[in-house]
């Protein structure tokens, strides 16, 4: 299956920005079952500085704000060929050791709430337990947009009882690590059934299971990723896999609008 993606993020600022940088991870990862046919990223209002592959093998591009801009637009578009792998991404690759994915981060530090979820988890093997965990996180945290904050930790989300895909992924990761399994955050695109316009980019989680390698879990939709899921970036948590992180000088307020189309070509 081929997915055509057209993703635009438009930042507007309440005052001219004297200087700043945007670090973007918007290039789909070469992955088992996922081939990038064609991809292009363009930015208005900022200039490309450097690009490199980070320790999670994400392709990273750093942009510098053009002096005094009030609008910055990031456009990425292209075509990705997808094949079904039943949510299995495969063996761990690269120099980053697996044990790193067992490290808690500020967003994924398990506390009382996560540990309580973990205690209830059942299953005969790791894979079964992870599926059970995914279902439990799904049950414990209602999907609700507009009511959570990007800075929330896993524990914040458990305490609130609601959240978005980011929170689901963080809680799942925190719990999986508590269970002794390496886990990571994935940001990417999801084509929701029967609709071309998507409200936002998506996020889910992956855990490493002996024998299978990395396996994906989309807690928000209670399934493992299939051909509708395009993996873009991975990391220990949101901060390492976010499509865009920035650092700005000056007092301007930022406003962000996303438009995203994911269409099926064949």
């Amino acid at each position: 299956m081929r997915l055509a993606i057209n993703h635009t993020t438009r930042y507007t600022y309440s005052a001219p920005v004297p200087y700043g940088v945007q670090q973007i991870r918007l290039y789909p990862k070469p992955t088992r079952g996922q081939t990038v046919v064609d991809w292009a990223i363009t930015v208005e209002g900022a200039t490309k500085q450097v690009e490199f592959d980070d320790h999670h093998r994400n392709h990273v591009i750093l942009f510098g704000f053009d002096a005094g801009v009030t609008e910055l637009v990031i456009r990425s578009r292209g075509v990705v060929e997808m094949a079904d792998t039943a949510g299995i991404v495969g063996p761990h690759e690269g120099l980053t050791p697996l044990w790193l994915f067992q490290r808690a981060t500020d967003h994924t530090r398990a506390g009382k709430g996560c540990r309580e979820i973990v205690r209830a988890v059942e299953g005969d093997n790791d894979l079964a337990r992870l599926h059970d965990l995914s279902a439990r996180v799904h049950g414990a945290i209602t999907y609700e947009t507009g009511k959570s904050e990007v800075v929330w930790t896993a524990e914040d989300a458990v305490a609130a009882g609601h959240g978005v895909c980011q929170d689901h992924a963080h809680v799942f990761i925190a719990c999986a690590r508590t269970m002794g399994l390496p886990a990571r955050y994935v940001s990417g695109y999801l084509r929701m059934d029967g609709q071309d316009e998507q409200s936002a980019t998506h996020a889910w989680a992956e855990a490493h299971v002996e024998g299978l390698g990395w396996v994906g879990f989309d807690v928000s939709n209670a399934i493992s990723p299939d051909t509708r899921y395009v993996r873009v970036a991975t990391g220990l948590d949101y901060t390492e896999a976010a499509p865009v992180i920035g650092h700005r000088y000056g007092p301007a307020e930022e406003n962000m609008a996303v438009s995203l189309r994911v269409t099926q070509q064949q």
Binding site: G20, V21, Q23, Q49, V50, E51, F52, D54, V60, L62, G64, I245, G246, H247
Partner: peptide
């Protein structure tokens, strides 16, 4: 502050990116 402590006023946002790119 972009890659490490975001509150740092002593550093250079993006210097790690330039470093990793060999700049």
């Amino acid at each position: 502050p972009l890659n490490f402590n975001p509150d740092s006023a002593l550093g250079v946002p993006g210097i790690m990116d330039v470093y990793r790119a060999g700049g």
